[in-house]
């Protein structure tokens, strides 16, 4: 089996785009419910006709994939796999509104054409000139983890040597309200909903730019406590580790009481003696928002230090973990979907 390395990862988010500025200058979004993406200057990064023709999420996808490929040092990738819970929901809504409010008579194709969920991965495929494997996973809060698992297995099994993998979601104000009414997203919480646009290059090659090793990826569905513990054990075994080897546990704790309670219960069940980290207070929540937990963990390993801003227990001052070796990333969605990832320092 080939080893899987993360050779680059770039983000556009509610924080300063395409940078790690959030570590030292995190922007605070307290008391906001929906925070939209802080976009880079599209016009300086993409040709004018490309900017005109494509929606924001596609522009973000092109820029993230361009920067990720460049930073990876690779010339091309053999696959593109994307996780996106809702796909191109802005165009979906525009077409839907036309259908619902103006009727079926004179519908135009442009919104429809760019509304299928796989528009993002195919746009990246066209952008990177990649004719290889191309897929899109849409599975609620583990959409990115679905995509990551696919690429992870394919590199391990030597089907491919390299791939772009990312998580992308956008959130319109109307759609946000709909989801809020349905009890989704932040709901009653202190956290906020954001959008997601982040991705990077995985390959079987260790390079000068490699951020970390991806040592394990596991998914579970509708597990009882014993099954969840079994899944954790298998995850650790995949990485050749024991609980005591874990430097920190990255979670999707986001200030939503119903969801956080499950995190706290399960963390206690795991019994791992390591600090708990979070990213949702920085990047917000969205279906594929967990991509930022992956990203922040990778950056921490690469920089040999887990920054203070990722620690959830604000009571303890000046926390940081120097020289972290292994970060376990755990997510659940509605306590139905569970995912474990282990990232390891190279």
């Amino acid at each position: 089996m080939s080893t899987v390395y993360l050779n680059s990862f770039k983000q556009i988010s509610v924080q300063k785009p395409l940078s790690e500025d959030w570590i030292n200058n995190p922007q605070n979004f307290e008391n906001q419910k929906l925070v939209r993406t802080q976009d880079p200057d599209f016009k300086s990064l993409l040709p004018a006709n490309v900017c005109r023709r494509n929606g924001n999420i596609l522009k973000r996808a092109m820029i993230v994939s361009n920067f990720a490929l460049k930073e990876s040092g690779l010339e091309s990738v053999e696959a593109v796999v994307v996780g996106s819970g809702l796909g191109c929901v802005e165009n979906t809504e525009l077409f839907l509104q036309e259908l619902v409010y103006e009727g079926e008579e004179f519908m135009k194709p442009s919104y429809f054409m760019a509304s299928t969920h796989n528009t993002i991965s195919s746009t990246i495929g066209i952008n990177l000139g990649c004719h290889g494997y191309n897929s899109t996973y849409c599975h609620k809060g583990v959409s990115f983890e679905n995509a990551l698992l696919d690429v992870f297995l394919q590199i391990q099994m030597n089907r491919i040597k390299s791939a772009f993998v990312g998580g992308f979601d956008e959130m319109s104000p109307t759609y946000f309200n709909i989801l809020q009414n349905a009890g989704y997203l932040v709901g009653d919480s202190k956290g906020f909903a954001g959008e997601a646009s982040a991705g990077g290059i995985l390959s079987n090659m260790l390079t000068d730019n490699t951020l970390c090793k991806v040592a394990a990826v596991r998914l579970g569905f509708m597990l009882n406590d014993d099954e969840l513990l079994d899944l954790l054990d298998v995850t650790l075994t995949d990485a050749g580790l024991q609980k005591s080897d874990i430097s920190a546990v990255m979670t999707g704790i986001n200030g939503k009481p119903s969801s956080d309670a499950i995190y706290h219960k399960n963390l206690e069940l795991f019994g791992i003696q390591a600090p708990t980290l979070g990213y949702a207070h920085l990047f917000g929540e969205s279906y594929s928002g967990s991509v930022y937990g992956f990203y922040a963990s990778a950056v921490s390993l690469h920089q040999n230090k887990i920054p203070q801003v990722l620690f959830l227990d604000k009571e303890v001052e000046n926390q940081s973990v120097q020289n972290p070796k292994n970060i376990l990333i755990y997510h659940h969605f509605n306590n139905k979907d569970h995912s474990f990832i282990i990232l390891q320092r190279c």
């Binding site: 819970g85 796909g87 969920h117 897929s135 996973y137 849409c138 599975h139 959409s143 597990l223 979907d337």
Partner: peptide
């Protein structure tokens, strides 16, 4: 009815009614 709009929910509806699966994934490539 909001619930089922997203793709993952179709998958989970089927999976929950079957009850045999310890892992589920959803694909959308048109």
């Amino acid at each position: 009815y909001l619930y089922p709009h997203d793709i993952g929910d179709s998958t989970e509806f089927i999976a929950e009614n079957i009850g045999l699966f310890s892992s589920v994934m959803s694909i959308s490539t048109a």
